[in-house]
């Protein structure tokens, strides 16, 4: 577990970054004040029926604000990157030496689609903060992912594009400890899923993924399981594994989705927060700001242990 007070290297990094943060914060504050000032002058001049000269007077601070905010943008980017690599990076190393964070890398969209957890293809896809490493014998990685699809709505003024989330949160991938060839997918149980499962079981099924009835009642209440191979699905989802997945799911706010494919297991955690971001208007010297990030790192790292993926007795090393 990371102890901020006793880690002098981290304290030094934080002190250096704090200077940078204060500079960025004060510049941004200045920029916003000038911007607000400019807007107020422009609005006031219009309401006083004295538009042109006063509007120009209002534009000057607004333009000035734009310039200083633009100039600080690069520094802000560098500061955020330094924060991820140095602060989050140190937090990761203190947990396990093998862990690294790559702020500009992520899980690419083709891999996101290959998990088969989400039936919709994204029209807009963002990913960042790839963390990778080992927990014992098991390699794993996770990244922040935001995938959206769009719909076009007809309005009086033409078409309007609306964006909807397919998934926002952390996608986690780990090397699974058993060999398998097919695909097994677990999704949160909802009305549509329940109906399609009933349909595929009682009338006929579309596609190659059949509904799997599992004997753990709580598990079946929480997840809908589909698989290409019934026996293989049960080989992966042993009674013990089902209990472990349920325990893992209890520690998350929204129900997770899982898939077992290409000898990996993927877990999608829906989360609204953007993790590993450096604070601008809060001090770095109060270690509380890292709490949420560290909780998430520990949680991901402990999945391997919790799902018992380091037990390698099934012919896969």
């Amino acid at each position: 577990m990371l102890n901020l007070e006793s880690n002098t290297a981290l304290q030094n990094v934080l002190a250096t970054l704090e200077v940078e943060r204060q500079k960025i914060a004060s510049t941004q504050k200045k920029g916003y004040i000038f911007l607000a000032l400019g807007i107020i002058i422009i609005i006031a001049s219009f309401s006083l029926n004295f538009p042109v000269p006063a509007a120009i007077a209002g534009l000057i601070p607004a333009i000035y604000a734009g310039i200083i905010l633009y100039q600080i943008a690069d520094e802000l980017k560098a500061y955020k990157e330094a924060f991820k690599i140095n602060v989050i990076g140190t937090a990761l190393k203190s947990l396990d030496q093998s862990l690294v964070i790559e702020p500009y890398k992520g899980i690419l969209d083709y891999e996101f689609e290959s998990t088969q957890i989400f039936s919709q293809s994204p029209d807009r896809y963002n990913t960042e903060d790839l963390v990778s490493g080992h927990a014992g014998k098991t390699a794993f990685y996770f990244a922040e992912v935001h995938a959206e699809y769009k719909t076009e709505v007809q309005t009086k003024n033409g078409t309007r594009t609306e964006w909807h989330d397919i998934f926002k949160g952390i996608l986690f991938a780990a090397d699974f400890n058993k060999n398998f060839n097919g695909v097994t997918i677990l999704k949160p149980k909802d009305l549509l899923g329940t109906m399609s499962a009933w349909f595929s079981k009682n009338l006929f099924s579309f596609g190659d993924n059949d509904f799997v009835t599992l004997e753990n009642a709580e598990f079946s209440k929480t997840f809908i399981t589909h698989a290409t191979d019934q026996v293989e699905a049960r080989y992966i989802l042993t009674p013990a594994m089902m209990e472990r997945i349920l325990a893992l799911n209890k520690n998350t706010k929204s129900t997770v989705s899982l898939s077992f494919i290409n000898s990996r297991m993927y877990i999608a955690f829906p989360l609204s927060r953007n993790y590993f971001e450096a604070p601008v208007f809060k001090t770095l010297l109060n270690p509380d700001f890292l709490d949420q990030d560290i909780t998430v790192i520990n949680f991901m790292y402990n999945i391997i242990q919790e799902l018992d993926l380091n037990t390698r007795i099934w012919g896969k090393n």
Binding site: E215, R312, W314, K316
Partner: peptide
């Protein structure tokens, strides 16, 4: 062989559950 044996044990269990 030992790991293949445990593997087959769980595969049989899975087949029986199926």
């Amino acid at each position: 062989l030992q790991s293949t044996w445990t593997e087959s044990e769980e595969q049989i269990a899975a087949a029986r559950r199926t």
